[in-house]
Design a protein around this nucleic acid. Structure first.
Lengths: 190, 190, 190, 190
DNA sequence: GTGTAACCGAGACGGTACGTCCAGTCTTAAG
DNA sequence: CTTAAGACTGGACGTACCGTCTCGGTTACAC
């Protein structure tokens, strides 16, 4: 028989909140590469150890912020009107809206930088944007509706769209929403 | 026409070579985030200042290595047999071969990390893999041959394929060449 | 009366001790101009920042070593036997003994070098040798005893003796204790 | 029969002049510790090698400037009116005038710093101020005139006066010409 | 109630790397 | 053969953060 309880105070939600808040704020203002644990601790009014106690790394912090929608929204749903191409396009435009913000490109690159460093961020990135869950469901519905080939590689298509956006951003090309939209139309044109 | 030359010693090719060599070696062995200017200088047997004299940043160094094919090959040609899907697939497999090397995934993520930090690397990354030049040409030939729609977004398709590979790697999914190959087949199946 | 303390870790006496020890050791072995903060840190097994946290400069470090008698002794007392000239001579010989050590001249020049760079060292230098406190007192006693003129410039006389030693050392003249002793005798001969 | 001539240009007096000029200028403006060979070369419009070719060290440069009166005047003569104390005092005031200049104290300390590093500067320093030549002669004349004891340690007295000035400056005491003057009067009062 | 164990803020610690400055040597082209 | 220019290796600078540790103080459960 083990005693699961222990004495002492529990984790402070105020500290947790302050840390994640500070992380998100600094991530937006300075980008991932200038983000430091010390900076977060000072900004949050928290001791460094409190951060190290609960998160193993800078990347894990970003991962948690990402999962809670503190960096980018998390409700990228895909409508279902019956028009596959149009539905995907609607979702795509909501994703691209992030990039049209003033520092949108830098924000995406920072997220990618975090993802290269931390496996969790990489996994969360697609999820956050609804690539797997929402987009995947919609595409599978499209297959059922006969609008997409039976053997269409659903997961790969999602990655392709997201990846095209990322590659474009890495190349620092002038933002061109229409480019990616045309890609989507091409994908579902038959 | 004036004489642009000045007197005095000239840039040492030996030092340049040693620096780029050391950079490529360390990049492969340790990845981008553990790559330090001091480490490169020591490995190359060179003073730090010699690096700072000629390259403004770590990213610029990687960019130059990339452009000279010191990190990954630069001759990713796309054959032209008349079979569009097959030709693209051949190119794709040669690109994916990089990832099948022991540390292939980490190598790609390191390249992406460098690209998030340095604009030049981002621009060179696609070029190095022949996405724009070779793949683009082949796709345009496909359009001429009637195998691809007149208005197919050539550049976007290239980015989509490369992007799918990157996103997969960021997610640390088990390497699955067939996935991306199926994406390519889907793209050109008609 | 407020509590001046704050929470958190307290200054490490072990580090302080190691740093001052290393400073004194290196100062003796290499002289002031070859003394580096990095060398001290390595010798003391300490991070550079720990030195910069507590001392603003190399000179301040030397000043503290000097004040604590880690570079030269600090107990240069002047006896009082009634014989002014003899008493001063006794003190003088104990000071000159430093110069008769193997690297005595270099040591004095190093101290002077530190004093040119750091005001604190300059002030401590005379104090350390007892010029102001002990020698000054003895001279004032000499005035009371009628062995020295009422208006003898006590402080200046101390500086003159110390200064003669320094100037001789700066000129790299062969060490000649008797020269300075003769100066002292001349000063108090009447 | 040897041919004393050799081909090529001889040592450029213009370069020599420019270097010593620049050295003196920078020495006055920045002090000895901030004086760098590179700075001198740039200020003089000269290659670094030209400096290293003719002077072995920074100290040697200062020594030569000092010897040529480029740092402080070199004509500190001692008058001979018959009044020993008054004559010495006249000389002393002309020396002290240097210290009353705006950056006089710093200048003296810089000279001392150079002297701690370079034997030549140390030897030249006293000479420059006329301590040995002029003051020594005057004191010896004083002995002949019966104003000074037969066995007065002439050289030591000179060093004592100069040394008192130096020690005072090292201690960053408020400049007080009268102090040293009182010392001189005390020395020759009988 | 009183321990006492885990929390918290603060920040000192040994380290690594940064990007800069300068030392002293070497290399080039011009005179 | 000297010169101006400046690239080279190398060492030290003073700063920023890393991740660990050590404090004094504060909960809040277990006795």
């Amino acid at each position: 028989m083990v005693n699961e309880h222990r004495s002492g105070p529990v984790r402070s939600t105020a500290a947790r909140e302050a840390i994640l808040d500070a992380t998100a704020r600094l991530f937006h203002n300075q980008g991932y590469d200038r983000l430091t644990i010390e900076g977060i601790a000072k900004e949050a009014g928290v001791g460094k150890q409190t951060i190290y106690r609960w998160w193993p790394s800078r990347g894990a912090l970003i991962g948690e912020c990402l999962a809670e929608g503190r960096l980018i929204p998390v409700d990228f749903v895909v409508p279902y009107t019956g028009d596959l191409s149009g539905d995907v396009e609607a979702w795509l435009r909501s994703v691209l809206a992030i990039l049209d913000e003033p520092q949108g490109g830098a924000l995406l690159r920072s997220l990618v930088a975090a993802a290269t460093e931390d496996a969790g961020v990489g996994q969360h990135l697609g999820e956050s944007l609804g690539v797997e869950e929402h987009l995947g469901s919609r595409l599978r519905a499209g297959i059922r509706d006969g609008q997409l080939a039976e053997d269409a590689p659903v997961a790969q298509i999602g990655r392709a769209i997201l990846g095209a956006i990322i590659v474009e951003s890495l190349g620092r090309e002038k933002r061109d929403s229409e480019g990616v939209v045309r890609l989507a139309r091409f994908l579902f044109a038959r």
